[in-house]
């Protein structure tokens, strides 16, 4: 409180308005895209080579945190108009219900099914049920990380202090 008023006296608000961080904001946008692409790349390479939903999700969260540094929370909330808790629930749903659907076909829980299809550009692409499970993990991890970081960052959000229950 004290610090803020001191800064105000020094004309910080004026200074702050003037330096609107063009460089940071612009590079953040570009780097955000690069990181997100890399995270998707990591995610899809996950089945046979190192990578996967967890790392991908963490990277996606890191990308959004970079945007948080450049912009403020309000802008980010406008950019990603989803409630984090809702996203967590969605991710959990995917990662539980995909193995569950397979169970209906008489297989034990988590039995994977693979399907190889031909796509125009990519050639033969394996479609694996584990991918959908991993999408759930990706969403959950990204949303949980973001939830925690926003909780740590904002003060008034401290009253809802849960969310990190699993990943």
């Amino acid at each position: 409180m004290n610090l803020k008023s001191t800064l105000k006296k020094l004309g910080y608000a004026k200074v702050h308005k003037q330096m609107n961080d063009v460089f940071l904001k612009y590079t953040a946008k570009v780097v955000f895209l690069i990181i997100i692409t890399f995270s998707i790349n990591l995610f899809f390479s996950g089945h046979y080579t190192p990578g996967g939903g967890f790392v991908g999700g963490l990277l996606a969260a890191a990308a959004i945190v970079l945007l948080l540094l450049a912009y403020d929370l309000k802008t980010i909330n406008k950019m990603i108009p989803f409630d984090h808790k809702w996203l967590i629930a969605l991710g959990l749903t995917l990662s539980v219900f995909v193995p569950l659907v397979l169970m209906i076909f008489g297989q034990p829980f988590f039995t994977h099914q693979a399907l190889y299809i031909e796509l125009p550009i990519f050639g033969e692409v394996p479609i694996h049920t584990a991918v959908f499970f991993d999408v759930g993990v990706y969403i959950t991890v990204a949303a949980t990380t973001l939830l925690i970081i926003t909780l740590l960052a904002t003060e008034q959000a401290m009253s809802d202090s849960e969310g990190a229950d699993r990943s």
Binding site: A89, V96, F109
Partner: peptide
């Protein structure tokens, strides 16, 4: 598996 699945599904539904 049901003793594990039933509560976790209930929990997720309640999150929604």
């Amino acid at each position: 598996l049901l003793p594990v699945l039933v509560p976790v599904i209930a929990g997720i539904v309640m999150l929604f």
